[in-house]
Design a protein around this nucleic acid. Structure first.
Lengths: 237, 237
DNA sequence: CGGCAAACGGATGGTGCTGTCCGTTTGGCG
DNA sequence: CGCCAAACGGACAGCACCATCCGTTTGCCG
């Protein structure tokens, strides 16, 4: 991907090979913090995850701080901006998604794999109001998020390819249809989690029924130019 | 609500029966206002409709006032609360929807009527960010809104009945599926209106394909308990 | 045309959120 | 055990928005 990546170590002025072992500190969250700070960092992330899930990504920072039992200053010290916090919290959920995709890739039945991954990701999303918003927030390449995303995209492409090859998935299915399902699924969040879950299940079932090769009639409208990454919101006044 | 409401007219010291002719003033918008006030009221509603469509229902009141070229006080004098304004603006769009339904009821082809109304309502919704939010806002029975809603519901029920009778609409289609489509469609609003439109069209086409009687497989999950009217949001902290 | 109530809008107090400052507390190392 | 830098959180300034007050303007009726 990046040109000259391997050659760059030669730029190091110290000719000796005694490179400190962790110049590029490993991106392990909260490394080198004091024990209490690490503890608070964890509490903040848990509180943030819960708050985002319940009330969406725009929940006040002070509410997260209160919920975590820390002062606002502590929250801002660990996560200077809201985006930092969202990215961190969402990295976990993104990892879960990636795991689901990888799991599905191991399934010998392509159609079942396809259905499973779509169903489960939507179920996750339905249980978490902030999930979709975080998708749409499109924060800049925050710390490995982009790489994970393309990994997931490639996995999905492979799932789609196999499912089409097996004949169960319609030929006019487009990868953008997955985004379509996710966006649509994000719209059905109601106040009652149980209702949301049921509605999500039914919606996904409808969509899968449309995706499955069968005697449906009529052509689909053209594919909208939606990419997983480039979704932005309206700017302020 | 308030005790003795009707009896209070007896308190009027003038014993004469010269009751003003319009005790229950007819609910015609802006009746009895001075000409400039009526003019401003109209400008406010136009500005509000545009602002709601572009930026959603939570757009600042002062932004609407600025856009209408009036002061904040004037806006609040006409519409004491945001809900008043939303209800008023949305009543218009609700009337459009009702018109679409009535039009469809005149179509001799039940399946085409069903498809048309769903497609067009979703197209309206896709062009207006505030539309869905207003649906979900669930303001109290504001001035004929509820009656209009049940009217639309009955019209939809009739459309569904005919479409099923014609054999084109699956028997396991539920009226709640319409709400499902509307909610889902509300989720696909992106920043670019053209993209939103295309995505909406494709989503609706997928849904219709699932709704149409054909060789789809598998049973649908149970119907979620969603009613057109009782959708609320999470309360504040 | 004169007067007045209706209507107007700039200005203002109140509230909630953001992001930072600073005096105090505490974990961990020597 | 004692020190000190790291960490903490209450308090605070800045800002945006809501909602109202009040002095001024204006439509409209007599």
């Amino acid at each position: 991907m990046e040109p000259g990546g391997a050659a760059r170590v030669a730029e190091n002025p110290s000719g000796a090979g005694a490179e400190p072992p962790a110049v590029r500190e490993p991106p392990i969250a909260g490394r080198g913090l004091r024990s209490d700070a690490r503890h608070n960092r964890r509490r903040i992330m848990e509180a943030a995850r819960a708050a985002f899930a319940e009330r969406g990504i725009d929940v006040p920072m002070v509410a997260i701080a209160r919920r975590a039992g820390v002062g606002p200053a502590t929250l801002y010290r660990r996560f200077p901006t809201r985006e930092t916090l969202v990215a961190e919290v969402f990295a976990d959920e993104m990892a879960e998604c990636a795991g689901l995709v990888d799991e599905a890739l191991a399934d010998p039945d392509p159609w079942r794999a396809f259905c499973t991954v779509l169903t489960e990701v939507c179920a996750m999303q339905a249980a978490d109001k902030g999930f979709t918003e975080a998708f749409l927030a499109a924060f800049p390449d925050s710390d490995g998020f982009d790489e994970r995303r393309v990994h997931v995209e490639h996995g999905l492409d492979e799932l789609i390819r196999r499912a089409k090859e097996s004949g169960r998935l319609r030929a006019d299915f487009a990868r953008e249809d997955i985004v379509l399902v996710l966006l649509a699924n994000g719209g059905i969040v109601t106040s009652d989690p149980e209702t949301t879950r049921a509605a999500s299940r039914r919606l996904v079932a409808h969509m899968l029924r449309s995706f499955e090769s069968a005697g449906g009639s009529g052509e689909l409208p053209p594919v909208p130019p939606i990419g997983l990454g480039q979704l932005y919101r309206l700017p302020g006044d």
